[in-house]
């Protein structure tokens, strides 16, 4: 464990806590893409298959359980909670996320570290996570003004993988045999997808104005 990875995990946890706060406090999920949340739930379920077979540390196990439980709870809430589901922008959340699923799975069949069930699903979860934010970014552009909690949620979500990139650079320096190309390249793509959001987030922070994404 290194400071970059720890900060990355904490940033990821904060993003999830912000989303839970928004849904719990406002009983609303306006501006949140259910499709992105479903993709994240799938990312965690397919990445943490080793939850019960490979014990790494208490921290690792606890964080995996928190990520799986929170993502499933958010999807469940957005689908079934009477107040929350009414605030879901169904007509704006129209990204064809099934294509992201299919593309990630096909790519995982082609590009993986080892042709084994868990390895292919691990690669699938890495590719899927890289593109899972797309429905959310499209929804933000369509819904024009972005409420503060939603803006913070997306910001921390983008920042966590950027910190992981520093973690991979650090691990490579202390151990030149460390290679994790699939996660690294995907992480770069994932972070790059937030580039324009980060730009408008910075502008809104500098001008102390509301976060506006151009349509």
């Amino acid at each position: 464990m290194n400071i970059f990875r720890f900060l990355g995990d904490m940033t990821h946890l904060i993003s999830i806590l912000i989303l839970l706060l928004k849904i719990y406090a406002t009983k609303s999920c306006s501006g949140i893409s259910l499709k992105t949340q479903e993709l994240y739930a799938l990312v965690f379920l397919t990445r943490y298959l080793d939850l019960f077979t490979d014990f790494i540390s208490v921290y690792n196990t606890v964080m995996k359980l928190v990520f799986i439980a929170s993502s499933l709870a958010i999807v469940w809430c957005m689908r079934n909670h009477p107040l929350v589901r009414r605030s879901y922008d169904k007509q704006l959340d129209t990204f064809r996320h099934y294509f992201l699923l299919l593309a990630s799975f096909l790519l995982a069949l082609l590009l993986h570290e080892k042709f084994a069930f868990q390895e292919v699903l691990w690669a699938f979860s890495i590719y899927l996570e890289a593109v899972a934010i797309l429905p959310q970014l499209v929804l933000l552009q369509r819904s024009g003004n972005v409420d503060n909690l939603t803006g913070q949620y997306v910001f921390f979500l983008g920042a966590y993988r950027a910190l992981y990139i520093f973690n991979w650079i650090y691990r490579y320096f202390i151990d030149p045999h460390f290679t994790r190309w699939i996660a690294c390249v995907s992480g770069l793509v994932q972070t790059a997808l937030y580039a324009d959001f980060f730009y408008y987030y910075f502008i809104s922070w500098k001008n102390n104005a509301k976060l506006q994404l151009p349509a």
Binding site: H12, M63, E113, K114, F115, E119, Y164, N167
Partner: peptide, 10 residues
């Protein structure tokens, strides 16, 4: 088979 990277990250 090829050794795969340790899955020690979240």
């Amino acid at each position: 088979g090829a050794r795969s990277s340790p899955k020690d990250e979240l």
